[in-house]
């Protein structure tokens, strides 16, 4: 099993619903977020282009945050999902500094927090992650890459995509359909 998410930058409208839904679903404290939306505007009026990306932890296959964690608090879980075990964490911040995507933040309770792919609270109960389930444009796809029939495998097969800074060697599993 290899969980992954794909984001259709051509349909995403940048509404940030994914961010609000993640916040209420995962009790992300006010003032913090596990996912965020980037807008890139390129060109000169009126020759313009916009790419909109809903971003979050890439659940890297070669995750620097797991590598640098001195206690094993940051670890790989089901389907390659990268999680933090707050009871093992000393709060050294190394994983936060090690993430090329700045996907982690220090939770006010002392440990780093980030996207979990909603693994335990939703995915393992047969639900889609909160952000995927709420997205009004249905531009987020989630599923098992090893299952050719999963939403994410299917859409990656037919669409062009990219990942973010693959040259960082992290083997990210957040795909952007372009």
């Amino acid at each position: 099993m290899r969980y992954a998410m794909a984001v259709d930058t051509r349909k995403c409208v940048g509404c940030s619903d994914c961010v609000v839904a993640c916040q209420t679903e995962n009790n992300v404290p006010i003032g913090y977020c596990r996912d965020w939306v980037v807008e890139v505007v390129d060109g000169t009026f009126p020759q313009l282009e916009i790419e909109i990306r809903s971003e979050r932890c890439n659940h890297c296959e070669n995750a620097p945050c797991v590598r640098c964690c001195p206690t094993g608090a940051s670890h790989y879980s089901d389907g390659g999902t990268v999680l933090v075990n707050s009871r093992k964490c000393i709060g050294c911040g190394a994983c936060i500094a090690s993430c090329p995507y700045d996907a982690r933040y220090p939770h006010p309770d002392g440990y780093p927090d980030k996207c979990t792919f909603c693994l335990t609270n939703r995915v393992q109960k047969g639900l889609k992650p909160a952000c995927v389930a709420v997205c009004p444009t249905k531009c987020l796809y989630f599923g098992d890459l090893e299952d050719p029939n999963s939403d994410v495998s299917r859409v990656l097969k037919v669409r062009k995509w990219k990942t973010l800074i693959p040259e960082a060697g992290t083997k990210p599993h957040l795909y952007f359909l372009i």
Binding site: E39, V40, G43, I52, G93, D102, P106
Partner: peptide, 23 residues
């Protein structure tokens, strides 16, 4: 002009606008 901005208001303490987790 190329503009790249976060439109979801992200302002994570000690991470935004620039990482400063290590003081």
């Amino acid at each position: 002009m190329k503009e790249e901005i976060i439109v979801s208001g992200r302002m994570n303490h000690m991470v935004d606008p620039q990482l400063h987790i290590w003081e």
